[in-house]
């Protein structure tokens, strides 16, 4: 029987980081030679990734060492705010106060679902930073993508389907009735990536967290079960977050039933 506790991954040194980075260098050079102009964003994002992850490592090290409830709470609030900013920054058709709306959507979806997940994983010490921060971070990362995709689809579909919206409104439909189909399509767009991931998990892909756990000595069966718990939490969070995000965006757009400001962009 394999003793997982005795298997340890070796520490990664600077040389290994440089070695793996050559892959990005070669891919970037290839893109440059082909004239695709992808090398610059690829290299910049790779560098950013390295800097951000290193900083995260140092910061997490400090937070784990401090192990103080106030610092933990401040940390999870901060990453939620950053997630809300990031999710609205990528929206070409953001509404007024989009950051605030996304923040509400994120906090209402990721925090309760993280709490439920912690209870399921029998982690009752909710102030323990080594569990709550990585878990919330993981769920937030997926949820912010889901909210961005969903809200982006909703606003762009509303923009391109104005005539359909107006047709229903003109017959006395409420804005929510008139945008039901758009809401359904937008939720579908936000949830589809995670549905696809769940469908092929274990067949085509070994999910990231499971890979990490296996490499860190956890039994593959336990790693698989943990991965299942996480995927259910992530998919639920994306669904709830996108729904709230889209609903709040719609509420902002339709806040005046007597006249829609956003339709005015049609006229000059």
């Amino acid at each position: 029987m394999r003793d997982y506790n005795k298997l340890n991954m070796p520490n990664i040194s600077h040389q290994e980081i440089i070695a793996i980075s050559f892959l990005t260098l070669f891919v970037g050079i290839f893109s440059w030679k082909m004239g695709w102009s992808l090398h610059r964003p690829l290299w910049i994002s790779t560098l950013r990734c390295l800097v951000q992850l290193s900083l995260l490592g140092y910061v997490l090290g400090y937070i784990f060492q401090a192990n103080h409830p106030a610092i933990t709470l401040f940390s999870i609030a901060s990453i939620t705010v950053v997630a809300a900013i990031a999710s609205s920054a990528r929206l070409p058709l953001a509404v007024r106060g989009q950051r605030r709306l996304n923040f509400v959507a994120l906090i209402c979806s990721t925090w309760p679902i993280t709490l439920i997940t912690l209870i399921v994983l029998q982690q009752y010490d909710l102030t323990k930073p080594t569990i709550i921060i990585p878990l919330l971070g993981l769920i937030l990362g997926h949820s912010l993508n889901g909210i961005t995709l969903g809200v982006e689809r909703f606003t762009s579909e509303l923009n391109s389907n104005r005539a359909y919206f107006i047709s229903l409104i003109s017959f006395g439909a409420t804005p929510y009735e008139a945008s039901q189909d758009l809401l359904k399509n937008s939720i579908k767009v936000s949830i589809t990536p995670v549905i696809n991931s769940m469908s092929v998990a274990g067949i085509v892909t070994v999910p990231g967290m499971m890979t990490g756990q296996i490499m860190s000595n956890v039994s593959p069966i336990q790693a698989a079960l943990y991965q299942y718990v996480i995927m259910v939490a992530v998919s639920s969070s994306i669904f709830v977050g996108s729904y709230i995000g889209i609903k709040l965006t719609a509420k902002q757009l339709f806040k005046s039933s007597k006249g829609f400001d956003f339709l005015l962009s049609d006229v000059s």
Binding site: I166, I169, S170, S256, S257, K258, G259, F260, D261, L263, L264, V267
Partner: peptide
């Protein structure tokens, strides 16, 4: 614009 304004599609 006038017809749409009559049914408050715009903030008149």
């Amino acid at each position: 614009l006038f017809l749409k304004s009559l049914i408050y599609l715009y903030p008149i």
